[in-house]
Design a protein around this nucleic acid. Sequence first.
DNA 1: TTTGATTGTTGATTTAGATTAAATTAGCTT
DNA 2: AAGCTAATTTAATCTAAATCAACAATCAAA
Lengths: 264, 264
Amino acid sequence: MGSANLRGSTQTAEGSKIPLQQNATPAKVCPHNSNISCASCRLNELCLPIALNKSEIHQLDEIVERNRPYKKGDHLYRQSDDFKSVYAVRSGSFKSYVLSDNGQGRVTSFFLPGEIIGMDGIASKQYANSTIALEHSSICEIPFSQLEKLSHQLPSLQHHFFAIMGNEIAKDQQIHTLLSSYTAEERTASFLLGLSSRYAHVSLSPSRFLLPMTRSDIGEYLGLTVETVSRIFTGLQRKELIQVNNREIELLDIAALRAIISSS
Amino acid sequence: MGSANLRGSTQTAEGSKIPLQQNATPAKVCPHNSNISCASCRLNELCLPIALNKSEIHQLDEIVERNRPYKKGDHLYRQSDDFKSVYAVRSGSFKSYVLSDNGQGRVTSFFLPGEIIGMDGIASKQYANSTIALEHSSICEIPFSQLEKLSHQLPSLQHHFFAIMGNEIAKDQQIHTLLSSYTAEERTASFLLGLSSRYAHVSLSPSRFLLPMTRSDIGEYLGLTVETVSRIFTGLQRKELIQVNNREIELLDIAALRAIISSS
DNA sequence: TTTGATTGTTGATTTAGATTAAATTAGCTT
DNA sequence: AAGCTAATTTAATCTAAATCAACAATCAAA
């Protein structure tokens, strides 16, 4: 089955082009462009500027540092580095991981566009894990001391950042439940649906996307081995709930995937 | 071996009295007393007042509601209730849990004195789980809208609450790693050491305490069955790393317990 | 002080997912 | 395009922990 040139776009059976996440913005506007202000950023509805007015967004803009793009494998920061900033993903994706004593890494989070990285360092003033780009990616760096200062001036920013942190806490607790009581198939289905709705949030297809991470990353994140993840993928494909071709995945029956989870 | 009257205090082999958490404060000051101000609360070094000056603490005091004590099994709030407040445990202990579709509960957190409950509701404006008292307990209720307002006036309170939330995030991610890669014995050892250091924080014995939760609660929290938790306890006891007698537990060899975890 | 209900322990058996071991396929370099 | 390394799949065992099944201890209420 034609799996040529899937980075960026692909052909459906009918020959129509469906954008995958890599080229969701028009070709002439590079998604890694560093010169977009918060006000004009297509992610401003879910990132920090949400609920801020024009002048407030401008003030936020002033403290945001738009770094050069990160190449696949570049570290945003490493475990135990001094905490300085939180980061908003502008394009691409990242993973956070910790190294166990025997050198084995365990993935703790994935980050997609619009999501905030680095909040685990706020309390201890050191990052609790390392974070690395999964593909060519760009981020906005927000020095935390300045974010605090500005939050103190702008009640709506303070409110919103409390909400972002609260959301992270709620999400982490859902994963606690997933890891403590779901089967391998339930975890995998839940993971795919989670990615689906996160892509939907940034106006990308909720049913067809590229997985930016390896099977091994998924396994570490879900507390499963690579082999199990692979087997579950083939199993779900056999049941015609998904269609996988390497990193490309299509969710064929979202309702049935949901049903798998709620059976637990 | 003499297991009489362990609620509150117990006899060692030598006959000396070692206080357990239930009577760590002098008998004449009831630990559930509702009339203690933040300024005089023995937990103020780890609760919200930390890093606030006298006058700031007084302002915080003004918004704190000191509810009547909760009996064992009383709900602080239930899943999907409208989010209104966060709570600080003054005495006793609580657990949070979610109900899965089949009615099975899964414990997501335990809360000991000085710890903050309810942050999972901040983002969605509804509590994501139910929270119940594990024993006779008392709490301070802090209406969140007022906490936000006061945080806006007091930079150090804003800073401290960001830190509390960041700490919750870091802690939840540690549990993610624990659940995704630790064995049953490693999880159990880690859980016991975690309780130990939390009791140490409130100046209680880190090596000898009463477990406020059932084996089943522990199992749900750690993603294990009751039977496994019970077997691991007996196993650790056989290895002389702990001494368990129903809810009473003594950590005999903390170094060895730590070694179990770092072997993973 | 019985009685029933909840909680905890222990043992036998089963099983989901890990481990081990290859073989296959993609993606990179050169 | 060849060669190399990392990623993925598949299959055959193995094992840690779940499940199933009694039973004992504790607690709360009558």
